[in-house]
């Protein structure tokens, strides 16, 4: 396996958790809710997923537990911000802090435990194609799931009726309410979906990316997922571009550092952020279809 192929493979692993978490948050924000707790939901997912996988010996149960844990965190957020109309920014920040602490508690007894990374699904023959074979046909299930998720989110938002309603709720909750749609129920389901995605992204980190648990292992990926959603102007395909770009530049700058180019490493580490923001700003520039959902972050209180 050549260096180039190896680099491409690591790009996929670096991009996948960002893609999953960002797609989840995209749906949440399209419904008009700003959940800044992605980092917290993600790391609780990582800890729970790893713990359950060790205890049961099943990666699948671990993944399911991670998704459930992310959803439970999201349900807490939804209860506060939708049910009690609490401030979304403050609640989201609190959720991240809670998640970081809670994950330490869940993972306490599993520090140092090791298990094999999740098995890859290898398609016979096709995976032997040079360069792209391993890239496309020999990945773990969560990578395939992330691609399906991308297609599914796009189809849901722009081709399905339910997605239209969700976008309408995010655009103007008062109008959607006037038409008789249940704003809070739709937002609750969207927030749960976002939590499930964040949990899945966490499970990918602790079960496939680095198959062990260490506290704080999400290392800010939740925040990057949030930023990607904004800079991708709330469009799923641009979220994918952003996630892979970020993953790609992260991996490339590591290789460049290893080559010793004489550029300060801090500057190189900043490169993925700069490149991702720059490219996404450029593709979004000057297009009107790239604005935030109009009701984003504003709580809805029905007047009855």
């Amino acid at each position: 396996m050549g260096l180039f192929e190896a680099i491409l493979l690591t790009v996929v692993t670096a991009a996948t958790p960002l893609l999953i978490a960002a797609l989840g948050e995209l749906v949440v924000e399209r419904s008009g809710v700003l959940n800044l707790g992605v980092e917290g939901m993600m790391i609780v997912g990582a800890a729970t997923g790893f713990a359950v996988a060790i205890l049961t010996g099943s990666a699948l149960l671990g993944v399911l537990a991670a998704v459930a844990a992310g959803m439970a965190m999201a349900a807490l957020f939804a209860g506060l911000t939708l049910g009690l109309a609490a401030n979304q920014v403050a609640t989201g920040l609190a959720l991240t802090i809670l998640g970081l602490g809670l994950s330490g508690l869940i993972g306490r007894d599993f520090i140092g435990a090791r298990r094999d990374p999740m098995a890859k699904i290898v398609v016979p023959y096709l995976s032997d194609i040079p360069v792209i074979g391993k890239l496309v046909f020999a990945q773990d299930p969560i990578v395939y799931a992330s691609v399906a998720l991308l297609a599914g989110v796009w189809w849901f938002l722009f081709r399905s009726r339910a997605g239209l309603v969700l976008r309408a709720v995010g655009e103007s909750h008062a109008s959607a309410h006037a038409l008789g749609y249940s704003v809070l129920k739709i937002r609750f389901l969207a927030v749960l979906f976002g939590g499930g995605c964040a949990g899945l992204a966490g499970a990918y980190l602790s079960l496939a990316y680095t198959p062990f648990w260490s506290p704080g292992m999400t290392a800010g990926r939740g925040w990057i997922a949030l930023a990607i959603v904004v800079f991708a102007s709330w469009l799923p395909l641009r979220v994918a571009i952003g996630a892979y770009l970020f993953g790609g530049v992260t991996v490339l700058q590591l290789h460049a550092q290893a080559q010793g180019l004489g550029i300060p490493s801090q500057l190189m580490s900043a490169l993925p952020y700069l490149a991702t923001i720059l490219v996404l700003v450029l593709i979004s520039a000057g297009r009107r279809g790239s604005q935030a959902p109009a009701s984003l972050g504003t709580p809805f209180v029905p007047d009855r």
């Binding site: 976008r167 309408a168 655009e171 109008s175 006037a178």
Partner: peptide, 30 residues
């Protein structure tokens, strides 16, 4: 409102209850 519409009561609001980012047909579909 859904029940009112089923009975045959329609309403046009003073401040339009339209979704600016959506198309005419999407607004109607909702």
């Amino acid at each position: 409102p859904a029940q009112a519409r089923r009975l045959g009561i329609g309403m046009v609001f003073q401040h339009f209850s339209l979704f600016e980012a959506l198309t005419v047909a999407e607004n109607v579909a909702l």
